[in-house]
Amino acid sequence: MKKHLTRGALAAAALAAAGAAQAQSSVTLAGLADMYVGSMRMAGDATRRNTAGSGGMTTSWIGVKGVEDLGGGLQVGFNFTSFLRMGSGDSGRFTGDTFWSRDANITLGGGFGTVTLGRWMAPNFLPTILFNPFGDSFAFSPLVLHANVSLYNGTGWTGTSPADTGWANQVAYTTPGFGGLKATLHYQFRDSAASGHNVGADVMYFSGPLGLTAFYERAQLGNPVAATYADGSTRTNWMVGGSYDFQVVKLFLTHGQARNDVSEVKIKATQLGASAPLGPGKLMASVAQSKNSGLDKTRRTIAVGYDYTLSKRTDVYANLMHDRITDYKSGTSYAVGIRHRF
């Protein structure tokens, strides 16, 4: 006997189907707001800069992320996230940065691992921010400053990661975890106006209190726009690092080198750091030292700070940093700030 559905039954079935579809996919608005008030002076700066700055501990960002369960263990996802300069309300980390400079990618994942297509993090990013006590602070982490922040104050000091922390036009493959070990292979294609390409890989291992990492990059393109270097060089960059959590203190150690094959300049960088729980927050201390063979100078940056947890999503912090380069006047910076994730 045939069964006929009433309009009510059809509506109920449609709603149930819609609910099932929604249960298999999600879109999330997410971001982070970080502002600080302080006084900044890097080595070689002519004057001190008092500022209400954006991104004291983490660069502020906002965007949308989504994922859909395709069944059979497969998932497809997307990420569109933009960096923000909260003090001015401008997008990007700096003038000329692309709008979706943090993420603009689509992913396909399953038991085989994850493939990412589009703009995404470079091989240097996670190993650098996970193996220093100040994390992804582009204002106060000595390791991040030496790796990714060039000084435009007459010192001629450049970062050791010439291709930026994110690569455009890339395809990346991340393996599934193998007993705490995970690796990612990266390849960046040139755009229509450039020649060359970037390749790299990063490896991370976490087991109990022990963490180990390494990355390697071979770059012919700068970023965020995939453009050939003006000197036509190929630039290599590598780092190895480790951490160990003794509960009362967590120690960090990294060492790496960047090299330009045209100028033959080498920059060797070493960082030692520590963090320790104190009350509802943690104390942080780090020192990084880099030697630039082209400038024949050494840079040393020391930072200490305290990060106080207010909730799972909000913390306040206070940092003090001293920066020094051979033959230049040193600089001291200090700030207090607040960071909120949503």
Rank of each mutant, 00 (worst) to 15 (best):
F99W: 07
R313E: 08
K266A: 10
S26Q: 15
P142W: 04
V27Y: 03
Q220R: 09
R190G: 08
D69V: 03
D34K: 00
G96Q: 02
R93M: 14
S101F: 07
F94Q: 10
A303D: 09
M42P: 10
A43Y: 02
V304R: 00
G89L: 07
V115I: 15
F83W: 11
Y36G: 02
M40N: 12
I325P: 01
S243N: 15
Y229F: 15
A285H: 01
H255C: 00
D191N: 15
A46Y: 00
K291I: 03
M57Q: 15
G66Y: 03
A122N: 09
T128F: 01
F189H: 12
A11M: 11
A172Y: 04
H197W: 06
G72C: 07
V76W: 10
R48A: 11
R85S: 13
K182H: 10
Q289S: 12
R85N: 15
A18E: 15
S137G: 05
D103M: 14
G196R: 10
G305Y: 07
T165I: 12
N169S: 12
S26N: 13
A17C: 00
A274G: 01
L283D: 06
E264C: 05
P123T: 01
A214F: 07
Q220D: 02
F342N: 05
G279P: 06
M121A: 13
A14M: 13
M321S: 13
Q170T: 02
S137K: 03
Y308P: 06
G211F: 08
L143A: 12
R341P: 01
S233D: 01
L70M: 13
V287T: 12
L283N: 08
K268N: 12
D164Q: 08
M321D: 07
L278Y: 11
P209E: 04
G208Y: 02
T236E: 02
G159S: 06
V27A: 10
L310F: 14
F78L: 08
L70F: 05
